[in-house]
Each structure stands twice: as C-alpha cells, then as structure tokens.
C-alpha cells in the first residue's frame, strides 16, 4: 500500500490545547509542510507569541524562542542578525501583532528583516476570552463590545497586509484564509513562498491568515468557517499585496 498522506516531520505528534474547530492546527500544519518541502527544518527557528499560540513551541519539531507580547519581530530580528544562515519565523495573532506589537511589525518590515511572519487574524483576543481587538469587524459582538464594535468609539479594523504593503522594503505580503479546501491550498502556497523569499532572496515576507475562533465567536466550527467567508473576507480581501519584483 502506498502512503499518500502523512504528518509532516516538522509537526510534533502531540495533542494541542487549541479549542475544537480552531484553525490554528491547520496553519501549524501548513508551516510544517512548507519547512519540510524546503528541507530547512534543521536550520529553522520559530519565535512564539503571547496569546492562544503561546504554546506553539510544543507543536513543532523545531527550536523555538518565546517572545514578550508583541515583540516577536524584534526578537526574530536579533536571532536572524546573529545567525543569518538560519530560517527565522514568527507566529503571531492579531491581539499580538496588530495591537501591542504594531510598532515592532512595522519596523521589522520597514528594515526589510529577512524573516517570515505568519500572522493569524481571528478578529478577537482569543486567550483572554474574546475581547474586542483592533481587527474586530464593525458591529461585531465581543466581550468588551456587547452591542457590537462601535466605529465612532473604537475606529475601524486594521488591515495589516495593506498597511505593510505601502512600505518599500518588504518583498512579499499576502492575505489568505483557511476556511475551505481551495483556500487552504492557496494558504499553503503563500506560506511556502514566504519561507522561500527568506531562503532565496533574504527578504521580509508576511502572510496574514484569516482564521476562526468558534469558542469566542459563539459559533460551531462549521458556522465559524461560513462566518469567516461571509464577514471577514469582504472586509479583509484575499490575495497578494506585495510580490517580489521578478514576479511582477
């Protein structure tokens, strides 16, 4: 019998702490597949965030360093500058990257640090219990916006991919979603490309991944996938926002 589907070598064979239906697991797998396919596991270092993915280091067969909340791109900068032949990536949620860590991501991108950033956007602070984040959609109900996000008081959701694509230095910036099989395939290609950019071109790459939070959205996993499609994608359009010059 021929084996057609297996766990990537870089993905640890352990149970995760993620809630049922959460898409962090899919995104972890896509990263592990990309690292395996590029054959760089023996020289890849991950930087873990604060938030739901705080325990990400338990789920990869890779070396990891934990960063303070929001500081992953700065920590990754230091690792990469000290060990330029390593592949360095950060894994950050929106409560981390688009909130307390806004300064770090903008400046790491602006310096063109040769790191890969996987930015998981599920529109809420998941770990602390579903509070309104800078990415929460207008009108979206959270534990700190019980009648929905009021844009008069809280402004509008930050589109990180678009914002960073105005910078000169970043080489690759894309937004993908993991709500359907075709979108997961596209997400895989984008994440792999974001690692290739680092390995081949020594450039900064970020992939924003639209993700679900069934627990804090109060929806079943299936309805969460639909909610993502119907509500998040119209506000956060999918696609490449910045591509390397030779591809243009």
């Amino acid at each position: 019998m021929r084996l057609v589907f297996d766990r990537p070598q870089s993905l640890a064979d352990v149970q995760t702490h993620y809630c049922p239906g959460c898409t962090h697991g899919i995104i972890h797998r896509l990263i592990a597949e990309a690292i395996d396919e590029l054959d760089v596991a023996d020289r890849t270092i991950g930087v873990a965030p604060v938030g739901c993915a705080v325990l990400a280091y338990n789920y990869f067969n890779l070396d990891f360093q934990e960063a303070a909340h929001g500081r992953a791109p700065a920590v990754a900068t230091g690792i990469k500058r000290a060990l330029p032949d390593r592949v360095v990536f950060t894994y950050q949620g929106d409560g981390d990257l688009a909130s307390i860590g806004t300064a770090e991501i903008i400046h790491a991108a602006n310096r063109g640090e040769a790191i890969t950033v996987v930015y998981v956007n599920n529109t809420v602070y998941g770990m602390t219990g579903g509070q309104m984040a800078p990415t929460t959609l207008p009108g979206q109900k959270t534990t700190t916006s019980p009648y929905g996000r009021d844009t008069d008081l809280a402004g509008y959701p930050i589109r990180v991919a678009e914002m960073l694509s105005t910078l000169v230095a970043p080489q690759y910036i894309a937004r993908v979603a993991v709500n359907s099989a075709p979108n997961i395939q596209k997400a895989k290609r984008a994440i792999k490309k974001a690692f290739e950019i680092q390995v081949n071109d020594n450039g900064f790459a970020l992939v924003e991944v639209l993700s679900t939070c069934p627990t804090n959205w109060g929806l079943t996993p299936e309805k969460s996938l639909r909610w993502l499609e119907e509500n998040m994608i119209p506000y956060y359009p999918l696609g490449d926002f910045k591509v390397p010059k030779e591809v243009e």
Partner: peptide
C-alpha cells in the same frame, strides 16, 4: 486585556455599554 486582570475591565466595559456608568471607555 491581560490575564488575570482582564475580567475587571471586561465587566466594566459592559457597564459602560449598558449606560450604567458615565465613563468614556477606551480599548
């Protein structure tokens, strides 16, 4: 938000949303 203090302000934000306080609440 920060564990374990999150809940104080989370509860307070619902008081603010329900008009039970006159407070300007900023997330």
């Amino acid at each position: 938000p920060i564990t374990p203090a999150t809940e104080i302000v989370q509860l307070f934000s619902s008081y603010a949303a329900n008009g039970m306080v006159k407070t300007e609440f900023v997330a």
